[in-house]
Design a protein around this nucleic acid. Structure first.
Lengths: 198, 198
DNA sequence: TTGACAACCTGAGGATCCCTCAGTTTGAAT
DNA sequence: ATTCAAACTGAGGGATCCTCAGGTTGTCAA
């Protein structure tokens, strides 16, 4: 609800802030290299910080993973607003889905954690996920009102589709990434008219 | 290729066979309770066997996971043959997909490992996975020849869809399992006529 | 029945990672 | 300069992984 909640919980002292940022940067690198189960001790070490400091800032692994993606989720919410204003409803929805899927599969394991957060209150980024859920729901409703998307599709189902596509993308070893094609198939399944070519 | 490869690699001595079976049974129970990352030492202990014995029979975690699902995969291959004989092509394909998705999500983490095996030769159950891949491809081709399914769908894409649905099912915490609905949406996306009601 | 041996089993142990917490250091407000 | 809450440190107990040197046992042939 209140985005400030995140900012407020960031450390106040200068050294705390510095370490917080260093840990986050190291975590991004590590997660992208090894997935969401990268070694936390290695991350702390790369950040030039003792393990205890990492745990001080991020009491759970999920909280660290989620912190690394907070910016991306915020972008997604903002982008939803822009797309809704600039494009026709179906374009806005499909483009947003594409971007969301890419973000959800930034590294291995992320989409699972985000899906968890989305439906489990009490996780650190639940509020952010819920906001994003609302963004998606808004875009969906607009497309449905315009008659472009089948009326019986629920927001939860939309996110199931997106999560599924992200999972496929995440699985993609070098070479075949089936997610764009998968997304197209899904879109053709949920729209009431052919999807425009890429 | 040769199914005997699996049987031949099973232990020959009576005590070995006994332990092999006990480990497999314990593993099934543990994986269903805790997912594919259950503790191997706990599994060995439950099987009444030292940890070294577990590693003797199953040198990697993946080999153990795959062994627990070998029967299921064999069933799936056999079932494909039956369905192809008994039903019209679209029914056969959709029913098979439903069963496969259920099997792929027997426990948390399975679908990821199977997907890996399917495209990575050198994994213990690659041959079995490849056989299943062929079964699915056959059913797909039949449905396409009959004009029920869009001609441009490839077998790999079919398995992407199934894997995605299985992942959604695997994520499902108590309550909402979106996979049946997801599968229906997918089917409506890939068929050339409406899917029959459940 | 009895070697003989390959197959099998055991479990200690080094390595890694998790997470906590008692003690120490330090930024910043007064 | 003083004070103290915030922040940091890193040793350490617990869990799990996986290996390997050495002991046990099933099986087969004589």
């Amino acid at each position: 609800m209140d985005d400030r909640a995140y900012i407020a919980q960031r450390p106040k002292r200068a050294d705390g802030q510095r370490n917080y940022d260093a840990i986050l940067a190291a975590a991004r690198k590590a997660f992208e290299a090894s997935g969401s189960d990268a070694s936390l001790e290695e991350i702390a070490s790369q950040a030039g910080v003792a393990i205890g400091t990492l745990y001080r800032h991020f009491p759970t692994r999920a909280s660290l993973v989620e912190a690394t993606t907070r910016d991306g989720l915020e972008n997604l919410v903002a982008q939803a607003g822009r797309l809704a204003a600039d494009r026709d409803p179906l374009d806005a929805l499909t483009e947003w889905m594409r971007e969301a899927v890419v973000h959800f599969s930034t590294f291995r394991g992320l989409v699972g954690i985000l899906t968890q957060s989305m439906y489990d209150e009490g996780t650190p980024s639940h509020a952010m996920c819920a906001a994003m859920h609302r963004s998606g729901a808004d875009l969906l409703r607009a497309a449905q009102t315009a008659g472009c998307v089948r009326a019986d599709l629920t927001p939860d189902e939309l996110f199931d589709l997106m999560g599924a596509a992200a999972w496929v993308r995440e699985q993609a070893t070098s070479g075949r990434d089936g997610s764009p094609r998968l997304l197209r198939l899904m879109l053709e399944g949920i729209t009431t008219r052919p999807v425009l070519p890429v």
